[in-house]
Simulated scan of single mutants.
Amino acid sequence: MRLIVAMTGATGAIYGIRLLEVLKEKGLETHLILSRWAEETIKMETSWTVEAVRKLAAAFYCEDDLGAALASGSFRHQGMIIVPCSMKTLASIAHGLAINLISRAADVTLKEGRKLILVPRETPLNAIHLENMLRLARLGAVILPPMPAFYHHPRSLQDLVDHLIGRILDQLDIEHGLYQRWPGAALAREEKS
């Protein structure tokens, strides 16, 4: 399986990093695009170096490389994930503005009918954000905001991050054991008592 992973400058760099770690552990081929602001966010929010994040992927591309293979529909892949996804990137995709390799690769992913997963990071959301997400959802993109769940009784920040990564993997039909699935209300009550 070949996947494109893009990271923008929105907060939540750890989501993109953890996704890359898990995909590498599973032996999947990843092609990484980092925006300039994603690189800054990695430095500000994590103990990771940009170089170490790049090494998690099979291939790395700069956001300005519009001549990259990823910019063409002939580059075959099974999905693209933008995590975290800034509202600027989301808006540029929603309106067909291929301003950099991230938005161009996303545009091509939609054009070719492939899975596009966006993990938007902003709160609160204004009407423009919501309309752009609705537009993309209607075009077939999966809008997967990083909203924590608590039914699996997370004990750490890592548990919350892994839950989101598991939900992304679910969208791609990739098996994982990153979180305990919802057992159903009856079983959840039994486990509690």
Rank of each mutant, 00 (worst) to 15 (best):
residue 61 Y to G: 00
residue 10 A to L: 07
residue 15 Y to P: 15
residue 99 I to S: 04
residue 17 I to E: 14
residue 67 G to W: 12
residue 49 T to C: 11
residue 116 L to R: 08
residue 42 I to F: 02
residue 42 I to H: 05
residue 96 G to A: 01
residue 74 S to V: 15
residue 38 A to F: 10
residue 133 M to I: 03
residue 118 L to F: 09
residue 83 V to W: 12
residue 169 L to N: 11
residue 91 A to E: 04
residue 44 M to T: 10
residue 81 I to M: 10
residue 17 I to A: 14
residue 161 V to D: 09
residue 24 K to I: 07
residue 113 G to L: 10
residue 62 C to T: 14
residue 162 D to I: 09
residue 113 G to M: 10
residue 63 E to D: 07
residue 149 A to D: 02
residue 40 E to Y: 12
residue 184 G to T: 05
residue 136 L to V: 03
residue 190 E to H: 11
residue 88 K to H: 08
residue 140 G to R: 10
residue 180 Q to D: 15
residue 143 I to Y: 03
residue 35 S to H: 05
residue 5 V to D: 09
residue 184 G to L: 08
residue 161 V to K: 11
residue 110 L to P: 03
residue 113 G to D: 12
residue 7 M to F: 07
residue 103 S to Y: 00
residue 150 F to Y: 15
residue 85 C to A: 14
residue 144 L to C: 06
residue 83 V to P: 11
residue 128 I to S: 06
residue 40 E to W: 11
residue 182 W to Q: 02
residue 156 S to Y: 06
residue 181 R to C: 09
residue 24 K to M: 11
residue 183 P to L: 13
residue 97 L to V: 02
residue 55 K to A: 14
residue 38 A to V: 00
residue 175 E to I: 01
residue 140 G to F: 10
residue 101 L to M: 04
residue 89 T to Y: 02
residue 123 T to Y: 04
residue 134 L to I: 12
residue 92 S to N: 10
residue 15 Y to D: 15
residue 174 I to F: 13
residue 71 A to D: 06
residue 112 E to G: 07
residue 48 W to T: 14
residue 114 R to C: 11
residue 15 Y to C: 12
residue 61 Y to W: 11
residue 153 H to W: 14
residue 117 I to P: 04
residue 192 K to G: 05
residue 113 G to I: 07
residue 57 A to E: 03
residue 55 K to L: 12
residue 50 V to G: 11
residue 140 G to P: 11
residue 44 M to D: 13
residue 89 T to Q: 01
residue 59 A to I: 06
residue 139 L to Q: 13
residue 57 A to P: 03
residue 180 Q to I: 10
residue 164 L to T: 03
residue 79 G to S: 12
residue 170 D to R: 02
residue 71 A to R: 04
residue 85 C to L: 07
residue 87 M to S: 02
residue 87 M to R: 01
residue 19 L to E: 15
residue 126 N to Y: 01
residue 142 V to R: 09
residue 119 V to T: 10
residue 21 E to D: 15
residue 126 N to E: 08
residue 134 L to S: 09
residue 65 D to L: 05
residue 43 K to R: 12
residue 150 F to P: 09
residue 190 E to S: 05
residue 179 Y to E: 07
residue 81 I to N: 07
residue 110 L to K: 02
residue 181 R to P: 12
residue 128 I to G: 08
residue 182 W to K: 01
residue 90 L to H: 02
residue 135 R to Y: 01
residue 123 T to V: 10
residue 21 E to T: 14
